[in-house]
Design a protein around this nucleic acid. Sequence first.
DNA 1: ACGCCTTGCTTAAACGTTTAAGCAAGATAC
DNA 2: GTATCTTGCTTAAACGTTTAAGCAAGGCGT
Lengths: 356, 356
Amino acid sequence: MAINRTGPNMNAIAAALGVSAATVSNALSGKGRVSPELVEKVRAKAAELGYVPSLAARALRTGRTGVLGLVLPDIANPLFPQIAQAIENAASNAGYGVLIADSRGDIAMQTEAIARLLERGVDGMVIVPRRGTRIADVGCPVAVIDTPSTPGNTVAADHWGGGVQMGRHLAALGHRKVLLIGTNTSSNVQNDRIGGLKAGLGAGIECETLWIEKVEAAAGEGCPLGLAEKAADGFTAFAAVSDLSALRALTELQRAGIGVPEMVSVTGFDDLIWSPVVTPALTTIRMDMATIADLAVAALNRVISQDGEAEPAASGNVASETDRVPMQLIVRQSTGAPNSHALQPSNKPTAGELKS
Amino acid sequence: MAINRTGPNMNAIAAALGVSAATVSNALSGKGRVSPELVEKVRAKAAELGYVPSLAARALRTGRTGVLGLVLPDIANPLFPQIAQAIENAASNAGYGVLIADSRGDIAMQTEAIARLLERGVDGMVIVPRRGTRIADVGCPVAVIDTPSTPGNTVAADHWGGGVQMGRHLAALGHRKVLLIGTNTSSNVQNDRIGGLKAGLGAGIECETLWIEKVEAAAGEGCPLGLAEKAADGFTAFAAVSDLSALRALTELQRAGIGVPEMVSVTGFDDLIWSPVVTPALTTIRMDMATIADLAVAALNRVISQDGEAEPAASGNVASETDRVPMQLIVRQSTGAPNSHALQPSNKPTAGELKS
DNA sequence: ACGCCTTGCTTAAACGTTTAAGCAAGATAC
DNA sequence: GTATCTTGCTTAAACGTTTAAGCAAGGCGT
């Protein structure tokens, strides 16, 4: 069952109209030579019978499944919903289905996941590589979503540029000593964001980078990051490269009685789901995932369609046009001018101030 | 291209061994009558040639695609990664691929998404329905993941039971006035959780329910919830039915200078990604998504396999065995005994206390 | 020794589509 | 008026698998 069990096929339409199945096929696809009147009749009959083409048969004949694979390093990534939603939407608009594959953070499984998709006959795939890995030649068109600084990739947000925007924002507010917070040193994306932040802050500003994985390696997962001490050391802004880290910073600082934003500022990246609703709402940088997904799918589509003809680099990565999609700064309540009284926790806002 | 462009097919193996393609098929599937020695030779040859069966041809012949659809109300839901990962894993273990479809929170698109999956010939689907909707007969086996109180569904976490556990936890800590925080009144899941919370708290405890959608309807999205006033009114525990709301509550309270957990307690549901790393780490209730996904996929698998034979309720929902998977209470730092000094914000922890 | 069952394979058809090749009829060109 | 082109369709093969049906050979019971 499942497929189009009882559904009418092309022969049914052909029989009902007294023509051949080939003509029906041509009429519906607009490919061969069919008289306009007959095309219309075929269309009408197809609609009347509720005809639905068998994708399986088409796939068998044409070698195209109309399905794209989506490979993710770790579905548990909080950014994943945004990516999946955008890709699904873009693919759906382009007439593709999306098959997901999760590599659960494991590098070996990433290869295995790709193999599974390949066996299922995907026409192409979108890969968000596990940090630090490179995607080798896969055997089908591939679009990689990573960061522009990784060579040979296709489409990515301009993480560096986003960092620059945030750096400038903080500098403009008057911050002069900023703590940059990253999680993994091996992430190209994070390194780009940090590089951009430093560039945006400019030369006159003191910076230090705190890597969460290093702190946790010593003190255990979920340990405090010691940000209150950093604040006492004179840091007035905490710029995380992910909203998850920013949230961690925000709650740790608040818990220590340090007011955000009147004492110190906190910023993130990605505009994750909670960012607008925490108190204070997070100032962050948003990726234009819809555009990124559109570009990735369009690039794949181009290679897939063209593939039958020229076969220039049949199974290599999608072209080399490294698209760089701008990011957008979203200023909310977690940033403000640094306060000279920031050193000693005091002057908490009262409950009444909340509404403002 | 894409599919198994150059890959060897059954005829290649058959030709190499001097037998017929049918025999190869039987040998590999173990179905017909083939001598053990020949089976072995076929296996060896297949491996040698790197044979990969064409799923498209198989789908065409058998009417089974080996693909399950996953329909989600809104991929942006922060719980989605957990669900998708669990389903993908369970399906993958059962030999299925997973095609995703997002209904973007729109009820009309939910129907359309289901239709798209159906056209692609999925063998069955897992649906997480948009709150308030019921899934009508779809035309293929369906497993619904919702809550046991929705009739006719298949598999769900025991949201009520989870609420009971949390209610008991708070009652045991000594809380006597508890604010329950939900987002949407129309969510069956949330209503069950709230029902369970009330039951777990017991009769002697004062409860009030705050629905975020109502507050936001009046004051705008992302508005403060006025929790500091509630604390002043004597509420010592804030039990949200989602970690997202819990986080919102936690930050709002912290911002108002109300210490968690020494003044008031905050709890959530779902153990979302940030819950262990915020300060204080959230006490919450975790669903056993892996088990839920296994049950859903197993139920689908059963109906799909059996389908060719009996056709008892061919295209209805998967059996009526409403599985109820227990939830697990995770106690972290956001809950504690209520403090009589809770009414006036004071005695903030200093930065030094953080490490403890 | 004859019929019958079992074993191990083959032949052939089928799934529903696409597409190259072919062909008759009418239109156009000279 | 004949040769050529175009139009509008048909025929047939192909994609790679599964599976029902068939068939020859050998083993067994009587």
